[in-house]
Design a protein around this nucleic acid. Structure first.
Length: 529
RNA sequence: UGCGCCGUGGAGCAGCGGUUAGCUCGCCAGGCUCAUAACCUGGAGGUCGUAGGUUCGAUCCCUACCGGCGCAACCA
């Protein structure tokens, strides 16, 4: 069984996750679920990035010690991810001992390799932000901090350790050239190649005077700076420095799923760090796009931000609608590699059309007919007669295409194909065969059509499984398909050929003889949202 | 300023050198009644940002311009 190691970026715990953060996790989750269906032994890692300056600060405000604070935040984050049915296998916190130990071992290895040297970090420091400002930022703000114009900037010169990133320029460029798939999507790749070509500088990787964080082993007066530490979560969670055997079979990662803003750290700094430490590089880095908020009244597209007050929290949508609706919207409507936009209006539109009118309605109409005309008992179904609904479409080709789309994180296209070449086909098939008329004139013919539609439910369940796990399971459980093949073992390939058997019958939950509606329509009303 | 992206019927997107420019939503007309006023069929609606250029031929390539946007070292 092939090992498949997939990661998401670790998040800062100082603010609660919003729909943009969730977008990344859902995209990674679909991939993880798909790989499991393909038979891989998947290790899906997520986590929180806790060694930041703001952590002790925020903890103090709440009257907590840093560790209990980050633990509580990690719990809250995981609650959200579980509510979204993100199937992560492990959740690392960078405040964990194993991470600290492994980080120190790693930085020592890089130090021993001669890639770390001491120098002076100079820059404008803002007491308001508690961070350094770049020359450009300061210049544009007229010599002040853009966020705190009234607070004077301080010029700080501090002894820090630097990583010889610039020394890896050629090796990085070689790697990009030899592994075109390393950075995805393509547009991101070009960005990074250009960036590395003309402005790769050494980076400061330690800071002085912080208590919270990981101490630098060769100089305990310094702590390891955020990025160096954060990136290492991918290997420390895989067993680096704590479980060599596990590490050997787990690393390298097959794909790091990250936001487009941090592509450079993952595609330049990170591989250089690994090269220095003599470790293999991840196979792929996928930089997804961002979710923007469309202002319902002005039509403006805005970045999600606390100051604009347009942040939407996943829990709000999950509670108001469902996790499936949430997943459906972001996976089908927002191109994962590019930017997407969110508005309640669009959300409702997509939901009503894709879920209520098509998937949900189809589920209802099929099951209703089965219950109404045959009491849910379709008898002995022959697989070789159950594919008329495809109307001669090339299913193996469709499945090949879907696999390629999913592998490339092109979920929107995958949904389009499923919608057009699978869902629409079933509606059309019903329209053309008119089983509701056959029920009055030719029961065996009617049954044959319904067997086809049952098989459609089975096929669709499989195809939807990576995206909408709950809906897919509901579809599969609408009939006794589990008797022919357990749900946990279905693969995309299984959707290519019908699999039915004797005693086919409806097992779906029903209320008053009618199937329970899956997706009640959303009515936002005249001015809600 | 540097690097990059985008501008296609009312909205959101595909197409990226070659038959009547596709899809989803919305709108209009018809059909069907198994279904969540859903589903099926048909229709209206686009000089593919502007101006040049390359080509037998450009939405797709090149140049300029206009307009919107992203990144520029810790902002998902």
């Amino acid at each position: 069984m092939a090992r498949y190691f997939i990661t998401t970026a670790i998040d800062y715990p100082n603010s609660r996750p919003h729909i943009g953060t969730a977008f990344e996790k859902i995209g990674a989750d679909a991939q993880a679920r798909f790989r499991r269906m393909e038979g891989d032994d998947v290790f899906f890692l997520m986590g929180n990035d806790e060694n930041t300056i703001k952590v002790p600060q925020r903890a103090r405000e709440l009257g907590l010690a840093p560790k209990p604070y980050v633990d509580e935040m990690a719990r809250q984050f995981q609650d959200v991810w579980r509510a979204l049915e993100i199937s992560f296998d492990e959740f690392i916190q960078t405040s964990e001992v194993r991470h600290h130990v492994a980080c120190q071992r790693f930085i020592q290895a890089v130090f021993d390799a001669g890639d770390i040297y001491k120098s002076v970090y100079k820059g404008h420091y803002c007491n308001g932000c508690e961070t350094f400002k770049t020359d450009k930022e300061v210049e544009e703000a007229g010599g002040r901090c853009p966020n705190h114009p009234s607070v004077p900037l301080i010029w700080v010169e501090e002894d820090n350790y630097f990583f010889r990133l610039s020394a890896y320029r050629d090796r990085l460029l070689d790697h990009y050239a030899n592994h075109p798939e390393f950075i995805q999507p393509e547009s991101r790749r070009n960005e990074i190649v250009n960036l590395v070509k003309d402005e790769l500088k050494d980076v400061a990787i330690t800071r002085k005077g912080f208590e919270w964080g990981i101490k630098t082993p060769f100089d305990p007066s310094q702590t390891i700076y955020v990025w160096f530490d954060a990136l290492l979560n991918y290997i420390t969670a895989a067993g680096y420095g704590s479980d060599p055997e596990r590490f050997a079979v787990t690393w390298p990662a097959d794909v790091h799923v990250i936001g487009k803003d941090i592509t450079r750290f993952h595609c330049a700094l990170w591989p250089a760090m690994l090269m220095s430490a003599g470790l293999p590089l991840p196979r792929r880095v996928f930089g997804h796009g961002f979710v923007y908020r469309k202002n319902e009244t002005t039509g403006e597209i805005q970045k999600l931000s606390k100051s604009l007050g347009n942040v939407v929290e996943p829990m709000e949508l999950i509670e108001r609608f469902s996790s499936e609706a949430f997943r459906y919207y972001f996976l089908s409507q927002c191109p994962f590699g590019g930017d997407g936009e969110f508005s309640f209006e669009r959300f409702a539109e997509a939901y009503n059309s894709g879920l209520a009118n098509n998937l949900g309605n189809l589920y209802s109409r099929i099951l209703t007919m089965c219950l109404k005309y045959f009491n849910g008992d379709l008898g002995d179904a022959r697989a070789d007669q159950a594919r008329a609904w495809t109307k001669g479409a090339d299913f193996p080709a469709l499945i090949q295409d879907l696999r390629a789309r999913i592998t490339a994180f092109e979920y929107g296209f995958a949904f389009q194909r499923i919608g057009r070449d699978v869902v629409d086909l079933a509606n059309l098939y019903i329209q053309e065969t008119e089983p509701f008329k056959l029920a009055k004139t030719d029961l065996p013919a009617c049954k044959a059509v319904l067997i086809n539609l049952a098989e459609w439910l089975r096929t669709t369940a499989i195809l939807l499984k990576p995206f909408l796990p709950r809906t897919a399971a509901t579809f599969y459980q609408a009939f006794n398909f589990e008797e022919f093949q357990p749900w946990s073992s279905v693969s995309y390939q299984d959707a290519a050929t019908p699999l039915l058997g004797p005693g086919l019958c409806v097992t779906a939950p029903s209320t008053g003889g009618k199937p329970t509606p899956l997706f009640p329509k959303i009515d936002l009303g005249p001015s809600s949202g």
